[in-house]
Design a protein around this nucleic acid. Structure first.
Lengths: 331, 331
DNA sequence: GTGAAAGCGCTAACAT
DNA sequence: ATGTTAGCGCTTTCAC
C-alpha cells in the first residue's frame, strides 16, 4: 500500500489540498474549526505523514543541519557531536554527520555533499592540520565554524573556546600548587585551539618567570604519542607537572605514568583540557578545563539561526572553567 | 546571486535539460561526446551542483540513511556510529544521526522524523530497557536492527554479535588462566546483548562445574555502577576474576581497582566485551571480545541494501574474537 | 474561509 | 542522439 499524500487527506476530508497545508502548518491562512477537525480526522485515519523532502524542496528550509568533525569517535568530538545533535533536535532539526578524517579534501567533500543536500546550515569543525584552508564560500550555505576559528579570508562566524586564557588558567593552577618545573604536552599544529592553549602556558610561565623550554609536541597517532610521552617521562627532563593541551594527551600521560610506576599526583601532576567525560572517569580523576558541551552546542546552533536571519552574528568566545580533581594534586 | 539550476546549465550548453540529466547520471540515455563536453563545460562554468532534495523527491532515493543509537557518546555506540557513517559515505550515502537517550518514546520520535525525511533506510540500535518494544512497522521504511535483535513481532532483519558465544569465550579464557572464582559484572536488562553475554558466562561456568552465584547487576548510571563495583570489590565475595559484559563496566572496574589499591591482574583479573578502542588504551590494557566495527557497519549497510532490493535478507550473527591483553593475565 | 494553480529542481518516459 | 513534458508532494499567492 502506498503512503498517503496530502491529496489523499484532502479528498477524504472533502476539502482542498491547500486547507490541509493550512492545518498542518497552522497557517498562513486561518481554517474554520469544523474543517480543521475533519482534516485532522482524515490525517489520523490515513496515518498521513508529510513528506519532508517535498516540503524542503518547496520551502527553502530542510530542518537538517550538517556537522563535519575530524573524527566523531575521538572523545572531545564525540561529546560535541552528541551535544549538537541534541541541541538541533530540541529546535526541530536533524543532523547529518560527516567525518573528515583530519583531511582537508575529505572535509570539502562532505561540505559539498551537505550543501547539495540543502542543509539549513553547516557546522564545521576544521581539522588542525597544515595546508591551505579551503574556504567554503562557494558553497552557498550558511557556515559556522566550531572549535577552530574560521580560516582567514572567510567571513563566517565561529564559536570557539577561550583557549589561550584556558591555557593560562590550567598553568596558573599548577603554579598555584607550588610546582616549578611544569612541562607542556601539546600537538604539532602551529595554529588552532591546541596551539593557543600552549600559548597560554607560555604566557603563564613567562609571567611566573619560569622556563618555557620543556615542551613536547606529538601528533595524531596515539601509539606514537605514548612512545613520545614515555620517552619524556623517562628522561632527565621529566617535569614535576604536565599541562596537556587536550584531555586525550593527559589521559595517555596518566596511562604511561601508571605503566612506569609513577604516582600521580605525587610524582607527577597532570592537568588536561577539554572537559570531557573521560577525564571524570580515569584513575586518578583528571583535572581539566573546558566549557559545557551543551552550552557550546546551543551557541553553535543559535549562531547558525542568526546567520540565517541575516543578522551577521558576532564570533563567540566561550570562557573556560577549571574542574579540579585529583590528578593535579587537588582533593 | 542565485544558485544555478539544471535549466541554467542546459541553456548555457545550448541543449535540453534532459541531456544535462543524462550527463549527470550517466544515463539512462547515451549522450554524444561533443554534447557531453559542452554540458560539462557549462557545469564547471556555472559551478552548478545538483539539488539533491529535488532529486530525492523525484526519484525515490535520498542517499541518506538514518541511524538511531541510545547515546552516541558512549564508547561502543560512538565507534559503531563512526563506522556506520564511514561505511555509508563509502557507498555514497550520508547519515542522519539520532540519540534516543535510552527512551523508547524518543526512539520512536526519531524513527518517525527520519521516516518523514524519506531516508533510504533506518539503522536502529534499540535501547536495552524494559517496556513495550514498539515495532516500527507503520513507518514504511526499510529497517535493520543493529546490536540488539529485532523486537518480537517485527520481520525486520538484524545484525548482531554472537553474544552468548562471546560470553562463553571470555569466561573460558579466564577459566583457562586457572582462575576458579569468576564473577560476572553485567547490566540489569533481562534480555538483549548484554544479558546474552551473561548467559554465556553462566553456560561456561556450569560446564566447568563452577558456581554461577557471583553476579553483580548494575544500571546505566556510571556513578552508581562504580559504587556497586566498589562495594563488591571490598566485600568477602570479591572474585579472583571478573567477566564484564561490556567494556565500560570493565573499565570502571579497572578504575575502582586502582582506587582500592588492587593490582590487575595480580589481585584481580578483568576481561571486557565490545572491542572498543578505550580497552586498548587503559592501564593495564583491557582484554576484550568483539568484532571489527568496520565489518559490523558494512554488514549493516549492505543488509539495508538487500532489504531495499526486496531480497529478504538473513539475520546476520557476527562471530566474536578475543583480543588478549594484560588485564586478564596475558602478556 | 476555502479552492485553483503555479512552481520548487529534478528524472525518465515518450516523442522526434 | 536529443528535445518535450508530466509529474514527485508540497507551500503559498491569488481569486472567489
Amino acid at each position: 500500500m502506498q503512503r498517503a499524500t496530502r491529496d489523499d487527506v484532502a479528498r477524504l476530508a472533502g476539502t482542498s489540498p491547500a486547507v490541509v497545508s493550512y492545518v498542518l502548518n497552522n497557517g498562513p491562512r486561518p481554517v474554520a474549526p469544523a474543517t480543521r477537525a475533519r482534516v485532522e480526522q482524515a490525517i489520523a485515519e490515513l496515518g498521513y505523514r508529510p513528506n519532508l523532502v517535498a516540503r524542503a524542496l518547496r520551502s527553502t528550509r530542510s530542518n537538517v543541519l550538517g556537522l563535519v568533525v575530524p573524527d566523531s569517535s575521538e572523545g572531545y568530538f564525540t561529546q560535541l557531536t552528541h551535544a549538537v545533535e541534541r541541541a538541533a533536535f530540541a529546535r526541530g532539526s536533524l543532523v547529518l554527520l560527516g567525518n573528515s578524517a583530519f583531511s582537508r579534501e575529505q572535509e570539502l567533500r562532505y561540505a559539498e555533499s551537505l550543501a547539495n543536500m540543502r542543509v539549513d546550515g553547516l557546522l564545521l569543525v576544521r581539522a588542525e592540520i597544515a595546508g591551505a584552508a579551503a574556504t567554503h564560500s562557494t558553497l552557498d550555505v550558511p557556515v559556522v565554524y566550531l572549535h577552530h576559528r574560521a580560516p582567514s579570508g572567510s567571513a563566517a562566524p565561529s564559536v570557539v573556546l577561550d583557549n589561550k586564557a584556558g591555557g593560562r588558567l590550567t598553568t596558573e593552577h599548577l603554579l598555584g600548587h607550588g610546582y616549578r618545573e611544569i612541562g607542556c604536552l601539546t600537538g604539532t599544529a602551529r595554529s588552532g585551539p591546541v596551539a593557543d592553549r600552549a600559548r597560554g602556558w607560555t604566557e603563564a610561565m613567562r609571567a611566573a618567570k619560569r622556563s618555557t623550554g620543556n615542551v613536547v609536541r606529538t601528533g595524531l597517532d596515539r601509539h606514537a604519542a605514548r612512545a613520545d610521552i614515555r620517552r619524556w617521562l623517562q628522561s632527565p627532563e621529566r617535569p614535576r607537572a604536565i599541562m596537556a593541551t587536550a584531555d586525550g594527551l593527559a589521559l595517555d600521560t596518566l596511562t604511561v605514568a601508571a605503566e612506569l610506576g609513577l604516582s600521580v599526583p605525587k610524582d607527577l601532576a597532570v592537568i588536561g583540557f577539554g572537559g570531557t567525560d573521560a577525564a571524570a572517569h580515569s584513575w586518578p580523576a583528571l583535572s581539566t578545563a573546558g566549557h559545557s558541551f551543551d552550552d557550546f552546542a546551543d551557541a553553535a546552533v543559535s549562531t547558525l539561526d542568526e546567520l540565517r536571519e541575516n543578522t551577521q552574528p558576532e564570533d563567540r568566545v566561550l570562557d573556560v572553567h577549571l574542574t579540579a580533581r585529583a590528578s593535579c594534586g587537588c582533593e
